[in-house]
Simulated scan of single mutants.
Amino acid sequence: MQFAVIGVLNTALHASVVIGLVEHMAFRPVIANAVAFFFANIFSYCLNSQITFKSTLSFGGYLRFLSVSLVSLAGTLLISGLGEHFGIDYRISLIGVIILVPAISFLALKFWAFSSAKPE
């Protein structure tokens, strides 16, 4: 449950950064989303590390977390790309993304990224 709540907070942060950069600083949306990704990713790492996985913060831990995040992005693009390729309605692919990507991400974080982390 904590992982899901942090995910919602993280999404709100990401959206806020994008809107702020586009509306107030004239960033292009793609650049704004790239900047927002890194802010949100660091935020998510800090909260999930301490709250969800009870782990101390470290640079190596963040690199593992970032790796899982990037693989999750690739999974999102793969699912949506396959859906598009096979003519599946994008909403069906989106349901697949919403169900599969967070679940797989959580497992990868729990059993790989934070598996060797020592509790506080």
Rank of each mutant, 00 (worst) to 15 (best):
M25A: 15
F53I: 07
W112R: 08
L57H: 14
V18E: 05
T56W: 15
P119G: 13
S93G: 08
F65K: 04
P119H: 15
I95V: 10
I92F: 01
A108P: 02
F38Y: 13
L70V: 08
I79G: 10
V97C: 02
Y62T: 06
A117G: 04
F106H: 01
I95L: 13
H85M: 03
L13V: 04
A32N: 05
L109K: 03
E84P: 03
A108T: 03
S55G: 09
G60N: 15
S58R: 15
Y45W: 11
L13M: 09
V30A: 08
I98M: 08
I51F: 11
L9G: 03
A103R: 00
F106Y: 08
A40P: 07
F59A: 15
G61F: 12
A117V: 03
T52P: 13
R64W: 13
W112Y: 08
E23G: 04
V30M: 07
I6H: 03
L94D: 13
M25T: 07
A74K: 09
T76V: 10
L57A: 13
P29F: 13
R64F: 14
I104F: 06
E23K: 04
T52D: 10
A74Q: 06
I31G: 03
P119K: 14
I99G: 00
V71Q: 07
L77Q: 14
Y62K: 02
E84G: 06
E23S: 09
G60F: 10
V22F: 04
M25H: 07
T11I: 07
G87L: 03
L100D: 00
S55T: 05
S67N: 04
S69N: 11
A108G: 04
N10P: 09
V22N: 02
D89E: 10
G60I: 14
E120K: 15
V30N: 01
K110I: 03
S80N: 14
A103G: 00
A4N: 01
N10S: 05
L66V: 07
S69Q: 11
D89V: 01
L9H: 01
F3E: 06
N10F: 00
S93R: 07
G87H: 00
F59W: 15
V17K: 04
F86D: 00
G96D: 04
V8N: 01
N48I: 06
S49C: 12
S80Q: 15
I79P: 12
L82N: 02
L66E: 08
R64C: 09
E23L: 09
G20M: 04
A12N: 05
S105Y: 00
S16G: 12
V5Y: 08
L82T: 02
K110Y: 12
H24K: 13
A4Y: 11
E120N: 14
V101L: 01
L9A: 02
S58A: 15
E84C: 01
T52V: 10
V17R: 05
A34D: 14
L21F: 00
S44A: 13
A103D: 00
S55L: 11
I31M: 09
I6S: 03
P119E: 11
S72C: 08
I19V: 09
R64L: 11
